[in-house]
C-alpha cells in the first residue's frame, strides 16, 4: 500500500484492523515510508519486518486493499481467501493501459494551459507535448531504474519539444506549452501525503516524503532549465 501512495495512518489502521479481526488482540505495528515493523503480540512468535524500496502511485490498489480489509472485518471472506487475494493483488487490480494513461496526460496538459494561462490556441500542441513527456517518464521508469533521472529527462524533453514546436510554427507561446506539459509530471500525491503524514504526527514519514517530492520537483526544474539554456 505504501508503494502505491497511501498515507501512513491508513496503512497503520488497516494492518491493525486485519490483525484484530484475525484474533491478535495485542498486535503492534510501526510504519514508516521505507519499512514496516509488526509484532503479533504473541510471545512465541517474533516480530516481522518488511522493507519498501520503491514508491509509485496506484490509487486503485489502495482502494482495493481497503475494500478487502473491510469485507474481512465484516466476515464476508475468511483469512485464507483474504491472504490469497492480497498476494495476487497485482493481478486483480488492472492498471489502465498505456494509451489511456497517455490520453489522461494529454488531457491534463491541454486543459491546464487553458485554465492557468487563458490560452485556447495552444490546446492541441500541449496535448501532444504532454503525451510525449508522460511516455518518456513511463518508459524510462521501466528500462532505466535511476531515481529522478526519468523526471529530469522527461522535463527536458517537454521543454525542448515546446520550444521546437514554436519554432516550427505549430504553437504560439512556448512558456504556456511548457507549463502545461509539466503538469502530469508534478509530484502531486507525494506532496499531499507529505502534508497529511506530518499532520497526523508521523514526523518521520511526512518530511521523508516531502524531501522525495522536493527532489523530483528540483529534477523537473533542472530539466526545464537545461532545455531553455540550449534551445
Amino acid at each position: 500500500m505504501i508503494e502505491s501512495g497511501s498515507e501512513m495512518t491508513r496503512v497503520n489502521d488497516t494492518i491493525l484492523r486485519i490483525a484484530h479481526n484475525a484474533g491478535l488482540k495485542d498486535a503492534k505495528v510501526y510504519v514508516t515510508v521505507t519499512g514496516i515493523i509488526m509484532s503479533g503480540g504473541v510471545s512465541d512468535v517474533g516480530a516481522q519486518v518488511g522493507s519498501i524500496d520503491k514508491r509509485s502511485f496506484d490509487l486503485e490498489k489502495v482502494a482495493k486493499v481497503n475494500e478487502l480489509s473491510r469485507s474481512f472485518a465484516a466476515k464476508q471472506i475468511d483469512i485464507q481467501n483474504f491472504y490469497d487475494q492480497l498476494i495476487h493483488i497485482d493481478d486483480i487490480v488492472g492498471t489502465f493501459p498505456l494509451w489511456v494513461q497517455e490520453i489522461g496526460a494529454g488531457i491534463v496538459s491541454g486543459t491546464l494551459v487553458v485554465v492557468f494561462r487563458n490560452n485556447l490556441a495552444d490546446f492541441w500542441i500541449t496535448f501532444l507535448v504532454g503525451m510525449v513527456g508522460w511516455a518518456v517518464l513511463y518508459f524510462l521508469n521501466i528500462y532505466v531504474q535511476i531515481r529522478f533521472l526519468s523526471e529530469f529527462l522527461a522535463a527536458a524533453a517537454v521543454a525542448a519539444l515546446a520550444i521546437l514546436s514554436v519554432q516550427f510554427g505549430l504553437g504560439h507561446q512556448a512558456d504556456d506549452i511548457i507549463v502545461g506539459g509539466m503538469m502530469p509530471l508534478v509530484p502531486g500525491i507525494p506532496l499531499t501525503n507529505a502534508v497529511r503524514d506530518a499532520l497526523s504526527g508521523n514526523l518521520i514519514s511526512g518530511p521523508a516524503r516531502g524531501i522525495e517530492a522536493l527532489i523530483s520537483a528540483c529534477a523537473l526544474g533542472f530539466g526545464v532549465a537545461i532545455a531553455l539554456h540550449f534551445m
Partner: peptide
C-alpha cells in the same frame, strides 16, 4: 466507502501553482 485520497489529489490539480513555479525556474535559468 472509498479512501478520501482518491478524491482530493485530482481535486488539487487545478490549484497547483504551475505557472509561477515555471516562471521561477525560468528566471533562475
Amino acid at each position: 466507502k472509498m479512501p478520501s485520497i482518491l478524491f482530493d489529489v485530482p481535486g488539487l490539480v487545478p490549484l497547483v501553482p504551475g505557472g509561477q513555479a515555471y516562471n521561477a525556474i525560468k528566471s533562475f535559468a
